[in-house]
Design a protein around this nucleic acid. Structure first.
Lengths: 340, 340
DNA sequence: TTTTCTTTAGAAAACGTTTTCATTAATAAA
DNA sequence: TTTATTAATGAAAACGTTTTCTAAAGAAAA
């Protein structure tokens, strides 16, 4: 059985109140009693039960984080940033995977709430569309900060990469290199995909081009799966379509496109250009090295965490939004359109 | 303020006992009362406080996991396996990073214990050497399962990749390709590195070769850092040493060696052969594709989690060990030694 | 009718803490 | 000396739950 404050009190022949006082060092206790109690604590290896403490204090020092998965290196990097900040501020991290499922996202939130977290950080939330009122009910009680969520939820804190801007940089670069027919490749469930698709559609409209069937949906899964599914879809499309380039919602999909090109013996970027998004570490190791839009994931996490503790310590009301600027990093998969 | 069972009871005009009974559905309660209570629960959006429940029941459904970091894709994959299993068994995951520091490892364990976890899974523990008695004291109270830890702690559960076997496969392959002078490249703090180094030393001894200064230590850090540090160390060594191959303790270091070779315009594998360890996703995207020893990380995690819940549900005593076999996967960085 | 059994529900103790309040003893001020 | 102040401690209430124990009301058996 685990040793409790009662056991310590009994053994040290003092009341639990006294033990608590030496533990917390917040009330005068006689130096010799204190020494005796400390000795017993050490001898019995007593570790105070934080759950009991938190229930008493009606607060908590654990914060929940929900990410789709850690398959895509994007999220581990975000978690890194979050953990780094939180650790320094004595918070612990309860980790949940939403697997791009609305149902799991809900379940995760409820689970975290019942576990009495001080706040929740949610990356790539799927339930943030305005018509979806899921998060509305939680405002009053628990601070939530979204990473790359829909900022229309203005009661919450947000940390965003300006994905529209990132998409525009990529699309503009493609345009400047003479590409007129451009695939847009995205996954299924995430606000991020939607904002990039919007950017894509308005870019196309602005340039009097048609998108006709060029947005391609790829399912979710682990890295290898995403890459492979993208590859296999693109293998069937690349030759018959007139497109000369692809803008991909994340680097994994971009790798899949590279693979498809290799399989069809198309040269990248001579025959086909590709731009990814995220700049995960993989992207600079593929051959050819992937041109992609960097969103500083660690910064994303760091900012989310700092917003979160600010929020907690302020006692609720904050709803700041931090927008980070992405940056196109030129590598080797963008080239001039040579097809006339 | 968060709504509690008391608030519900008051509003529904019943006692808390009754609310608890409808919540848990474990005692008879009149059908109309039940309906009324349920309505209030729904209306007030009452979510039971699990901390209070757990404190009452003196058990917990969260398990802690300690990994060095998520910089190396190795650990996210392990976490994936763990989470997959635990989620299905209704456990939550408290995530800690030990950053290859003994101090942080200790702090993590204490933190998790104070947070009343049902058990702890520790990957790459650094405090498992026999002379270090840190973990001994925890046996009685909390199940611990180690992933790739020192199995001499026979009161605990272990899931191991047979790293000695993996090292031997790699070394033997190198030997068979004519390599006689082989770097051994490792990080600082981890039992894993030690067992591989032992395998390396005994392999060398068995083959009547000398290791003379060929074990190279690389510091820890994020992926890019490890790769880069390895690269920069190796750039200064590659030309002046007689070695013709390197066996690296993980794939990141192997990538660093590849980079060093590129920088020195050495052809891999013609001029220099490299074998990595882990088979992280990066390894099949580098150019040339990395020959490496695969340890199925997801399996590692899955097994650790299943051992853990088995342990918890059995009520303490178990101390099984599961050993997984690694497998050398041949790709493009191993070649015949051409330097006579 | 009276007695016994069953349903249903509340009161209260418990889980491991913290903290307020009260009490005692020792010290300082009068 | 007596009185006021301070230091050190314990008892008990509280945090949000669960569960045992008890009791009331109604139904079935006598």
């Amino acid at each position: 059985m685990k040793v409790t404050i009662n056991d310590v009190a009994k053994k040290a022949e003092v009341s639990v109140a006294t033990v608590s006082r030496v533990l917390n060092n917040n009330y005068p206790v006689n130096v010799v009693t204190r020494a005796r109690v400390n000795k017993v604590i050490k001898d019995m290896q007593f570790i105070p039960n934080m759950q009991a403490q938190e229930i008493k204090h009606r607060k908590s020092r654990t914060i929940g984080i929900i990410v789709p998965s850690v398959d895509n290196m994007f999220f581990p990097e975000v978690i890194n940033g979050v953990e780094d900040y939180l650790m320094k501020h004595d918070y612990s991290l309860l980790l949940c995977f939403s697997k791009n499922s609305k149902e799991r996202e809900k379940a995760n939130v409820r689970n975290l709430l019942s576990r009495n977290v001080a706040g929740i950080i949610i990356a790539d939330a799927d339930l943030t569309n305005v018509e979806n009122h899921f998060y509305d009910e939680f405002v009053k009680n628990t601070p939530i900060t979204f990473i790359n969520g829909n900022p229309s939820h203005d009661q919450f804190s947000h940390v965003l990469c300006d994905e529209e801007e990132g998409a525009n940089q990529a699309l503009q670069a493609l345009w400047n290199h003479g590409h007129r027919h451009i695939y847009f490749i995205r996954g299924i469930n995430s606000h991020s995909y939607d904002v990039k698709e919007n950017a894509y559609r308005t870019f196309m409209k602005q340039h009097n081009e048609e998108c006709d069937g060029d947005v391609i949906y790829v399912g979710e899964g682990n890295s290898s799966k995403v890459i492979d599914v993208t590859r296999s879809i693109m293998v069937t499309r690349l030759l018959k379509d007139k497109n000369t380039a692809a803008f991909c919602c994340n680097d994994l999909m971009a790798l899949g496109v590279i693979d498809a090109c290799k399989e069809l013996a198309m040269d990248v970027p001579k025959d086909f250009s590709i731009i990814g998004f995220d700049n995960i570490i993989l992207s600079k190791f593929v051959q050819p090295k992937l041109t992609t839009v960097d969103q500083n994931m660690v910064q994303l996490g760091l900012n989310a965490a700092s917003l979160m503790v600010e929020n907690i310590e302020a006692g609720k009301k904050l709803n700041k939004t931090i927008v980070l600027s992405p940056k196109l990093v030129m590598r080797e998969t963008l080239g001039k359109n040579s097809n006339k």
